[in-house]
């Protein structure tokens, strides 16, 4: 059972305090977008064996959404960061590079 640190209230809680919220940094496509773009937004999700960026909500806690970088194989949590950002902050990217050289996830690397 995972431990996650909420970047908003600082609590290091066990998984039952949180709700998983799917893939992070999804780009919303709305009216006027092509079918392909819309399909990507609704349905296409990364399923990597390795570095994954995802959303969590501190449901039994401060209620804030945040992002986490996690390895889907070893369950190592590389870090958690704000939800109000379009890409992982540089510190997180640096940790990923140090621990998983050559990593990439969608258009981040």
């Amino acid at each position: 059972m995972l431990i996650l640190e909420c970047p908003y209230c600082g609590v290091k809680g066990e998984e039952t305090e949180f709700h998983a919220g799917g893939e992070a940094h999804l780009k919303r496509f709305g009216p006027g977008s092509s079918d392909a773009d819309f399909e990507t937004y609704l349905f296409m999700r990364e399923n990597p064996k390795g570095v994954h960026l995802e959303r969590w909500r501190h449901a039994n806690g401060c209620g804030k959404w945040f992002h986490a970088a996690r390895c889907t194989m070893t369950l190592e949590v590389f870090g958690t960061y704000s939800a109000q950002t379009y890409e992982p902050p540089q510190e997180i990217k640096d940790i990923l590079t140090a621990k998983r050289p050559g990593w990439s996830w969608r258009n981040f690397k």
């Binding site: 709700h19 959303r55 909500r57 449901a59 209620g63 804030k64 959404w65 939800a83 109000q84």
Partner: peptide
């Protein structure tokens, strides 16, 4: 939760 999700993310 739905409202908070859209407002926060």
């Amino acid at each position: 939760g739905h409202m908070e999700e859209w407002l926060q993310t």
